[in-house]
């Protein structure tokens, strides 16, 4: 267990660092999927194999691919200098992040967790299914939330389509503006 934990933790955290520090956006995306894989491994350790499968399918698969598409559509040739990928407040951001991480971790350790013990997760897929339907002792609110989530996904799809779609002859692309922007 401990070995697996250490391996997963270092994979997750190092990949997360990689996301922040890579110069190439595509590398960032690949690091991100590595980090997500690490989290999926944690889910297996935490008795939730079904959720781990979701994680791999949705995050490592779908979200990463979507983000890669997003990168393809929105990137110009890569920058070479490291400094140019960062905003001006790079140091304050660094210290804020260190502070946040350390403080959160410290507070977690401060709590007395003696009453907890592992093994309550739904090992079976059917267990997760029951939870999501709000039956067999799971909070009944799930049966509502499940519907709300489906509406949310539908609305998100509509929103994404309507924002990214453009008809010709409309909007901001006036002739000449492209060249001007790129040359600058």
């Amino acid at each position: 267990m401990v070995v697996a934990f250490i391996f997963l933790a270092s994979m997750t955290l190092l990949c997360a660092m990689g996301v922040v520090l890579s110069r190439n956006v595509v590398h960032s995306a690949l690091f991100m999927s590595g980090s997500f894989l690490g989290v999926a491994g944690f889910f297996v350790m935490l008795n939730s194999p079904a959720l781990a499968a979701f994680q791999v399918l949705i995050y490592v698969g779908a979200v990463t691919v979507v983000i890669l598409f997003g990168i393809m559509f929105t990137q110009r040739p890569q920058v070479r200098r490291f400094g140019s990928i960062l905003q001006r407040q790079r140091w304050s951001g660094f210290f804020v992040a260190i502070g946040v991480g350390a403080f959160l971790a410290y507070m977690m350790g401060l709590q007395n967790w003696d009453y907890t013990e592992p093994g309550n997760g739904p090992r079976e897929v059917s267990g997760l299914g029951e939870i999501l339907l709000g039956v067999n002792g799971a909070p009944p609110i799930f049966s509502l939330l499940f519907e709300v989530i489906s509406i949310l996904l539908l609305v998100a799809v509509i929103a994404a389509i309507v924002v990214s779609r453009r008809k010709t002859g409309e909007g901001i692309d006036r002739p000449g503006s492209d060249r001007e922007e790129v040359s600058r």
Binding site: I141, L145, V148, L152, V155, A156, I158, A159, A160, V162
Partner: peptide, 17 residues
């Protein structure tokens, strides 16, 4: 609490668009 989160997101995500 999670119901609150999901409802807030349902109110927020379309508002981005």
């Amino acid at each position: 609490l999670f119901g609150i989160f999901v409802a807030i997101e349902l109110a927020t995500i379309p508002s981005y668009a």
